[in-house]
Design a protein around this nucleic acid. Structure first.
Lengths: 352, 352
DNA sequence: CCCTTGTGCAGGAACGTTCCTTCACGAATA
DNA sequence: TATTCGTGAAGGAACGTTCCTGCACAAGGG
């Protein structure tokens, strides 16, 4: 049987007919509008309830001219169907975006990142938050061309035709500065051979981070020790760590840029016969709160998914509701120094 | 400035006027329908592109009669705004639901779990997946009353008026059986004092699990050792574990029903001076893949969020597209025995 | 008694599409 | 030449609301 076989939903006019009034009266009675005596209002409500009437959401939206729906897309792995929540960062972005949106009375739609061209334009959205847009991102371009406000980063907005740019807002992160902050900290704590584990994605976070690391090393004449993962996955990450630590003249500090369970990393390092922070200083880029419950607690670099999402939604809603508001927001990372990268006693406070 | 101040979007009729044709022709030309010579088609497309025309998604949906949008709601903590992705289970449900939905050409809307009555009915949805519905769940009731197909569990559907029940499909889990399976395994491995860490939510998972534990203990004349967390949070969980292990005649097996980072739990147990599995057998209910990379690897109980979500979406889409399909699907948990609960050498293979 | 004012409600346009029906016209056929 | 047929395109209804406009009627004031 097909969808149309089912008994069709009861509409406003059906209620009107049953109650012996016009659709105006029904609409007014149900929405608390118009000039109606209580008797009429109650009568209509009773009939509506008896018939099981529920207004059609789509029709209301068409009338209203807005949908109170915000799109959310993570573009990091555009080629794969969907990977949002595998990483704590995205997972928290999703949660925070949804919470912020709900607080403003908006719902959130998780957008496809692939599919037939423009397929996302079939979804009725008031605005969109695009995380990690790719270069010349068609999604950003399409939505802005369609007049749908977008929050992305400044680079993505700069790539878009000027005439459509007005509806764009941005949230930016200075990933390079965050990486340098961590490296400076490790250097100050006495580290001389800092190794880095990075992913291999197109995300500007990774690109900027790796570039910053290379520059930082070049400035000091240090040789970069970097492991770029062939693919996401716990086993690849642990494998990379193992190889880094097995090298001749092994690193005395490790800085992971990829999401990995901090207690698991600690466990792995110990199994390789190294102690933290005695033999190896450790800083993890992670959103996993387990980092501060290990022994020793692990220093973390966070890119504040919660704050980012909140700002993105605020920017979008300001724009949607006609408030001027800011054109965007620049964030700084949250670097928490804990025991895993504190200066170990037996090393002395600082070099030199 | 208000929203209406902005230059209004260009509509189908605007293109029609500009191209000197009727709206029928424009619609046909753009959608590849109708009988039009290539010349007309191209001309219309060129004009449309020049004007920057994008069809209005809401209007199309109203015509189409469906929205290709599926709602997703986790009702475990109905009173709080939104907590989906804080837990790996929900996080994976979200990911898997979205992937499955996209594969069928549907988008996913993350639904509010609180808010003004019926507020969810303002969202144009074709179907809804409700995880962990509460007793007499108003969301399930409202959607079914509105004729929107729902996937929930059998109990939730049984509470709904018979005449609206037809649109309901179910995915069920026998949580009690899963818990008994784990307890039997631990008993077979020689455990005599099995402690359990449970949450304190209204979710039927927790209710059924805890009940099963109590029944299992009663059948054997064992005294239950259960810690129910006052609130979600890593520190509460670790605190509960610490207290359980500090008790006189401490447990020789631990079974956690709440989400917790397995390597962190292992680390904590060791800090308390116990070894796994030597002093303490360990089974974690978790979706965290880190469990199999620790030393020793940790036995896990999984409730298969990926499979559950996939089944829910399939059920929904079958119903939406008029296929008969199954009324529901009953799942069994996935219990993976690893070294953390294997029979330790020095204990002997079995009791008795 | 006529004009105003207010109340209670109906009619119908509008939101922006899609698609069914109709129509005009030129070519082919009887 | 009259009839069919196919092609190209226009007109307008429909989707289900909301809301603007306006009508009928009763009450009140001059």
């Amino acid at each position: 049987m097909s969808q149309s076989d089912r008994t069709p939903r009861v509409r406003l006019v059906d209620v009107a007919r049953a109650a012996g009034v016009s659709k105006t009266t029904v609409s007014d009675a149900l929405n608390g509008a118009g000039r109606l005596p209580a008797a009429t209002r109650e009568h209509v409500q009773k009939v509506a309830r008896a018939l099981g009437y529920r207004p059609n959401a789509t029709a209301r939206l068409l009338r209203a001219g807005h949908t109170r729906l915000l799109g959310l897309a993570a573009r990091e792995y555009v080629e794969t169907p969907w990977v949002y929540a595998d990483l704590a960062y995205f997972s928290q972005i999703v949660t925070a975006t949804t919470q912020a949106a709900l607080a403003h009375g908006y719902g959130v739609v998780l957008l496809p990142t692939y599919g037939p061209d423009d397929c996302w334009l079939d979804i009725p959205l008031d605005g969109v938050f695009v995380i990690d847009p790719v270069e010349g991102d068609p999604m950003v371009r399409d939505f802005l061309a369609a007049g749908v406000p977008v929050v992305a980063d400044r680079r993505a907005l700069a790539e878009v035709p000027v005439e459509t740019r007005e509806a764009g807002r941005w949230v930016d992160f200075d990933y390079g500065a965050a990486v340098r902050q961590v490296l400076d900290h490790l250097e100050a704590a006495g580290a001389e051979r800092i190794a880095v584990v990075a992913g291999a994605t197109t995300a500007c976070f990774h690109q900027q981070s790796v570039r910053a690391y290379h520059e930082w090393c070049a400035e000091r004449g240090r040789e970069p020790r970097i492991a770029c993962l062939p693919a996401p996955g716990v086993e690849h990450t642990l494998q990379a760590v193992t190889e880094l630590l097995a090298a001749p003249a092994p690193p005395d500090a490790l800085f992971t840029l990829v999401e990995l369970s901090p207690p698991l990393l600690l466990d792995t390092i110990r199994r390789l016969g190294r102690s933290v922070p005695g033999d190896l200083l450790l800083v993890c880029t992670t959103e996993d709160s387990a980092a501060c419950y290990t022994d020793p607690p692990i220093s973390t670099l966070s890119f504040l998914p919660g704050e980012t999402a909140q700002a993105a939604v605020d920017l979008l809603v300001d724009r949607l509701e006609g408030r001027e508001g800011d054109p965007g927001h620049l964030f700084s990372a949250d670097f928490r120094v804990r025991a895993s990268s504190a200066v170990p006693e037996r090393r002395g406070a600082r070099r030199g």
